[in-house]
Design a protein around this nucleic acid. Sequence first.
DNA 1: TTGATTTTAGAATGAACATTCTATTTGTTG
DNA 2: CAACAAATAGAATGTTCATTCTAAAATCAA
Lengths: 201, 201
Amino acid sequence: MPLTGAEKRRNARIAQVLDAAAHCFVELGFHRASMAKIAAKAKMSPGHIYHYFESKEAIIAAIVDRESARAAERFAEFDALDSTELAAVMTERAVLSIAEKTDILQSALNMEMLAECQRNPEIACIIHKHDRYVRDQLTHLIRDKIGLDLAEARTDMMMVQFSGLANRLLRNPDLDLTNMVVLMRQTMTSILSPTLCQKAK
Amino acid sequence: MPLTGAEKRRNARIAQVLDAAAHCFVELGFHRASMAKIAAKAKMSPGHIYHYFESKEAIIAAIVDRESARAAERFAEFDALDSTELAAVMTERAVLSIAEKTDILQSALNMEMLAECQRNPEIACIIHKHDRYVRDQLTHLIRDKIGLDLAEARTDMMMVQFSGLANRLLRNPDLDLTNMVVLMRQTMTSILSPTLCQKAK
DNA sequence: TTGATTTTAGAATGAACATTCTATTTGTTG
DNA sequence: CAACAAATAGAATGTTCATTCTAAAATCAA
């Protein structure tokens, strides 16, 4: 069924609030971004926001959901024939996402989301849901299409590289990406290597 | 020169505030932890805290400094003869630090510190200082003791594994560490492998 | 002990904030 | 167009908070 005019306007308004909130959250964090500032950015009155969201917490939850969904989307459509190909694509993706300036700002929001995740069960639930979705896709690819064992562990390890790289860039802003790419590709390849060297203790 | 009684008392008081602040920050985050709550936890009056810290921001900075220094300490005393040995020790360290419950709670604080790092130059400075210290130690070991090239990149890549693992555990609380250890060791070994496979595009 | 200094508590202050309330404008429908 | 409903603004409310102020208690020096 098509949306009525009123519904369309309502959705546009909600998106307007979310865009404004995302902007303020990136700049100030969840708890220093006031409703007044979000309202100003969204070009509506503070009181009016409450016609679309029950509370500021609800806005935070909606932002976490939207941002997680977007991140998951960017991950969703991998399609590789073998592990070498997947390693290359994943490396490219990891380095590319880092190279964009926007993603570095986005990182701050991501970190805040993860911090919130430890304290707020509702936020935790949202984040875990999206993470599970991404993992399921990737695990399916690794296990069923490429045919490797330990697919879950390999998936998690691949994802360690992504979040680790973002984290690293915050801690070391002088990071030299050029040499990093070589190592990242080698690492991805190693994670997807069919034979794991079981080192004896 | 030994500390006078007054100085000792003062230092103890400061530590008391920092312990209380750390506790409240882990539980509530920087901005929902009020001075009143920190004071209650530290068993002193809110006003009195201002004899030791100029502002709440100063307490946050002190906590970031103290926690970063502690994390750096835990990293400082590596001493390996070859890359295989280092890979094993680093893996053990990474998995061990994750296995402790305390570190998972600590992770929330770490994430919040990194988020703050993007917005507050003073915090950024503190975090980058400690990160540089750890990197210098590890790079020295890899380049001068073990004798590998691309030491800085390898160092950063090792550290990607640590922060990535902490990050991953927040997003996927069901992570299976048993299989992960195998992959982590293989990854560390691969990063420290003398010959890097330069994949052609 | 006495006077001076430091340490401490707790109330007072003023600002910022999330949320609610009231009224006005805008759009819709008969 | 008239009546109604939805959308919107902006002021009002009550709370929470960081910080400051005031004075009491503890410590120390003589």
